[in-house]
Design a protein around this nucleic acid. Sequence first.
DNA 1: CCTATTATATACCGACCGTTATGGAACAGG
DNA 2: CCTGTTCCATAACGGTCGGTATATAATAGG
Lengths: 207, 207
Amino acid sequence: MEQDVIATPASAPKGRPREFCVDQALAEALHVFWAKGYDGASMTDLTEAMGITKPSLYAAFGNKEALFHKALDLYEQEKLEYGRAALEQPTARKVAEYYLRGAIDVHGGTDDPKGCMGLISSLACSPEAESIKADVVRRRASSQRLLVERFERAKAEGDIPAHVDAEGLTSVLYALLQGITVQAGAGATHAELERLVDTSMTLWPSP
Amino acid sequence: MEQDVIATPASAPKGRPREFCVDQALAEALHVFWAKGYDGASMTDLTEAMGITKPSLYAAFGNKEALFHKALDLYEQEKLEYGRAALEQPTARKVAEYYLRGAIDVHGGTDDPKGCMGLISSLACSPEAESIKADVVRRRASSQRLLVERFERAKAEGDIPAHVDAEGLTSVLYALLQGITVQAGAGATHAELERLVDTSMTLWPSP
DNA sequence: CCTATTATATACCGACCGTTATGGAACAGG
DNA sequence: CCTGTTCCATAACGGTCGGTATATAATAGG
């Protein structure tokens, strides 16, 4: 009691040390979930990709669902970070364009799986995956709210015409984003997606 | 050989007559696939909804995949028929609006499951479902081609400005459609979807 | 009535699912 | 060395998956 354990920062590991890197394993799991969705990714798929056995996975991450939520955290943090940068663009037009081109980079790239992990997982509705779906929908709603606020500000700044409905415009932009990820997942080429964005930008309201 | 069997129109059924209506059973199966996707719909889900046993299902439809393709045929025929009507609208703007409002009616209604059956099934990617995905993608591409041709014609008729890319515009419209079905599946209200469409129409190019 | 044919009902198949019990291996402190 | 703790590896658990073998019921034609 009086030994004054000052929360040893990297606390002394007592037992046998684990033989894999948790972060790297999580990154591999993310890749599998992204490519196959929550239901489509089996424990065997996951453990093989992560290079660990099932008991190790359960000890380190809890269970499949907990692993998914952690993977989704990583996904948002690494891959959807461009959304925060987009909000800081100087004009509403640039916000939109940043969003759309960012979506092409992330969801239409060649290194990662095609399509959007959130979208894929929010549509696969096995009964047990309801909480997964709810999680994705909740995250989407909160980021959408930020976008509405950004467009409200843009209207106040005369950045987009006053008659435009900020909430409607956000829904439109989100629909375009979702369409991009759907088409990317269906095999659309980089050029086709850029054509989509180019045309979208010609439609965007001018101040 | 000489009995001159003139292809008895409703040929004489020889054995025990089936006790269910194939069309009605297929309609029930469509409902299940629509709500749960290909992978999410189990044979038990299907047989219970259809009111028949598994051997009857296999005798009448082949297997799960064949049943799905027939359900998808029915879906396109009944629910996506508005797409053909849309193409016949007099102006490109009305074509687009017909498409978008039709999508709200079909995918945001209260009688049928929310969301688009094709989209749901094209994203659930179990290994065996690759042919499902390919089928959906193929059907989508062919309907998209018709839309491009319609917009080419609209350009020729001065219906949309000459500088607009018909193919890009088609991709944009399709992205909006896909976004509508995604948001409908995620629980968006009818009013929110209409707001999305209203705003989309304010962005649509004027001749 | 008998046979052939087709549909139904039950029970079952092997494979895979997510999850866990079991036993041994690798470390720290005594 | 011994004990306690933590991790790895194997194998197994009950359950569900899509698909079927088997036996029985219902019709048509002879």
